[in-house]
């Protein structure tokens, strides 16, 4: 399987109270369990089934993903920046493997 690589775009700085946009992408085939490979064999299901974004340890948003989410799951969503701190992003694959990424933001 191609290398699974998470990527996140968060502004480095923001004004207090500013609503910023967060963009996340993880390179992942999202095998739905319905497609067949070149030899006609069914490719077993292997997807990222869960995504979570936290700020300073507190959950901001999460997503439950089904096989209908496209390969290389991509999300954009807002966040109201009120304090400096660290975002932690986590993607969980079928079987429990976790991929993580962190980003810092400073206010002012």
């Amino acid at each position: 399987m191609a290398k699974v690589k998470p990527r996140v775009k968060v502004p480095k700085t923001a004004d207090a109270g500013e609503i910023i946009e967060i963009k996340t992408l993880i390179s992942h085939p999202m095998h739905s369990g319905r497609a067949v490979d070149g030899d006609g064999n069914l490719v077993p299901r292997q997807i990222i089934h869960s995504f979570r974004a936290s700020f300073n340890g507190k959950l901001v948003m999460s997503v439950d993903l089904k096989p209908s989410v496209s390969a290389n799951p991509f999300f954009t969503f807002p966040f109201k920046a009120t304090a400096s701190g660290t975002f932690d992003f986590i993607w969980i694959e079928d079987g429990g493997k976790e991929y993580t990424k962190s980003k810092k933001i400073s206010i002012g």
């Binding site: 948003m61 997503v63 096989p67 209908s68 799951p73 991509f74 999300f75 807002p78 966040f79 109201k80």
Partner: peptide, 30 residues
């Protein structure tokens, strides 16, 4: 949800007030 897919559920987003606004974007299979 997508009513013509083998499984209608595509994704569920769980949000919190910390977001300050309510929107999101993703890509799905149809």
């Amino acid at each position: 949800l997508a009513d013509g897919n083998p499984e209608p559920e595509v994704a569920t987003f769980n949000f919190s007030p910390a977001m300050g606004a309510c929107y999101a974007t993703t890509r799905m299979r149809l």
